[in-house]
Design a protein around this nucleic acid. Structure first.
Length: 461
RNA sequence: GUCCCGUUCGUCUAGUGGCUAGGACUCCAGAUUCUCAUUCUGGCAACAGGAGUUCAAUUCUCCUACGGGAUACCA
């Protein structure tokens, strides 16, 4: 049974990169009839952000990525990690380290100056039993480090990258238990992945290089390592890892900007994966059906919001008008626009939907149906021209409740001998406030005879 | 610095030892006999460079360049 976990740390909101990882986790689990598990990696007390877990959980929910188990919190499992850390010490696979931060910084700085690889100098790796006992007894702060082997190459068999070889002599003796008693990622993730019977570890590429440490941990503990899957990163326009400096890439922010969850899912899915067909618009179910690691790209993908906008428009236009109308109501409420006339509102949305890229724009594109129009000097000049006035008068005299609009618009043009821009522009301006926009019959239909006449009267000389 | 990963239009990507290197977004043009939007049609635009293997390399190998990641008591 396939079991995959999404394991974010609660240091901020769920961002697009995290969402993509969670999405592939979910897709693979569902594809294999397995389980999708949420685990919160809250082992860094300094970076903990209040409310981050709620945001993570909520964002996943909105996106439709429901987890089968969890969330599990690592901060509630400290005793377990400690137990294994101690076991590793007993086995001689880990050791106490009493080096201070200053000593380590200094060593690292010296290595940099000498252009050597920066790594822990292994000062405490060969401390005598007595030294250790004495320091422990005197209450010296300590961490526990993993003693990496120095004589073997680690081979990672990665599902998207293939075989990756890393020379063990380059690897650091990583801290696995911090002085505050919390484990580091390396220990916590390995222990939990084993205990939770995770079969596939799917994570960002930034973890590839530390995988040997994890493999070694599995070996020392006598456990079977999971299948490794390292995903390419999502990049900003400068091709660097998406970071907070580039702006707010949280799922929440994109929802607020007015992107539909379906569009976000679809778009993010395509950043690093494709169904090997020309199909680009698809839903979560389709992704789950088709997903495989074989089709995951190796190279990072630049996030391009233009294409997201286009895709969002596609989803907006595809949506049943009543659903869309319902979804858009809140923007009108926020703008204090009265949309209680349901019939009119639906017509307005039907027109606006072709213009929409992001949801909140709906107000901008349809407020002219609800608010009094304002005209510039140039506008007034056009509205007050003799020809325009003739058209308006004709409409005021002849437009009736029973009128068939399309026909009326045509016959009026014929009757008055005015056509083209000279005919349509002033009308649209008077009724809609802009010389470009929807067709006149559509405007008449939305406004209705009474409102149309009111608007025409107000520009009559 | 060191190690690891990567490199097809500006961006997301398909693809193959021999093709006019395909699609999508953006942009441009045309059509939908008023405009805008939608929709449709067409166009611009790419195999990082150099060696090697081969009858033939974008495709396989090596090197270089460039980009990214890691190098923490962060994940």
């Amino acid at each position: 049974m396939v079991r995959v976990r999404f394991a974010p740390s609660p240091t901020g909101k769920l961002h697009l990169g995290g969402l993509r990882t969670a999405l592939y986790d979910y897709a693979y689990a569902k594809n294999q009839g397995g389980k999708f598990i949420l685990r919160i990696e809250d082992t860094d007390q300094n970076r903990f952000v209040e409310g981050a877990t709620d945001n993570l959980v909520n964002s996943l929910k909105v996106m439709g990525l429901n987890f089968d188990e969890g969330p599990t919190f690592q901060s509630q499992r400290l005793e377990i990690y400690k137990k294994y850390a101690l076991q590793l010490i007993e086995q001689g696979d880990a050791y106490y380290c009493f080096c201070t931060k200053q000593e380590l910084d200094l060593a690292r700085q010296r290595q940099k100056e000498l252009k050597l690889p920066t790594k822990y100098p292994e000062t405490c790796r060969n401390l005598s039993q007595e030294d250790v006992a004495q320091k422990l007894a005197s209450g010296t702060p300590y961490v526990i480090r993993l003693a990496m082997p120095r004589d073997r190459d680690f081979i990672i068999f990665d599902k998207v990258r293939g075989k990756v070889k890393i020379d063990s002599s380059l690897l650091d003796d990583q801290v696995i238990l911090k002085s505050d008693g919390f484990p580091t990622y390396h220990l916590a993730a390995v222990v939990d992945d084993h205990l939770m019977e995770i079969t596939h570890v799917i994570r960002g590429e930034e973890w590839l290089y530390s995988t040997p440490k994890h493999i070694h941990l599995y070996d020392c503990l006598g456990w079977k390592p999971p299948t490794w899957v390292h995903l390419p990163l999502i990049l900003n326009e400068n091709k660097a890892k998406l970071s907070k400096r580039d702006g707010d890439f949280s799922v929440e922010a994109y929802l607020e900007k007015g992107y539909l969850p379906e569009a976000i899912i679809n778009f993010v899915a395509l950043l690093g994966w494709n169904p090997k067909t020309e199909k680009e618009i698809f839903d979560l179910q389709y992704l789950c059906d088709k997903f495989s690691f074989k089709a995951v790209n190796k190279a990072g993908a630049v996030f391009d919001e233009c294409k997201l906008e286009w895709m969002n428009g596609q989803y907006i236009r595809k949506m049943p008008i009543s659903d869309l109308a319902e979804k858009l109501k809140k923007y009108f409420v926020a703008a204090k626009i009265d949309i209680s006339n349901e019939k009119k509102y639906l017509k307005v949305i039907d027109v606006a939907k072709d213009y929409l890229v992001r949801l909140p724009q709906v107000v901008e594109y349809s407020q002219m149906f609800y608010q009094e129009l304002e005209f510039s000097g140039d506008d007034l000049e056009l509205l007050h021209s003799e020809e325009s006035q003739t058209v308006f008068k004709y409409y005021l005299e002849n437009l009736q409740e029973v009128t068939e609009y399309e026909q009326f618009v045509k016959s009026a043009s014929a009757h008055l001998g005015v056509k083209g821009k000279a005919y349509f522009f002033p009308l649209r301006l008077a009724l809609f406030g802009n010389s470009s926009g929807p067709n006149i019959p559509v405007l008449l239909d939305i406004l209705g005879v009474e409102e149309t006449k009111n608007r025409l009267k107000s520009v009559l000389l």
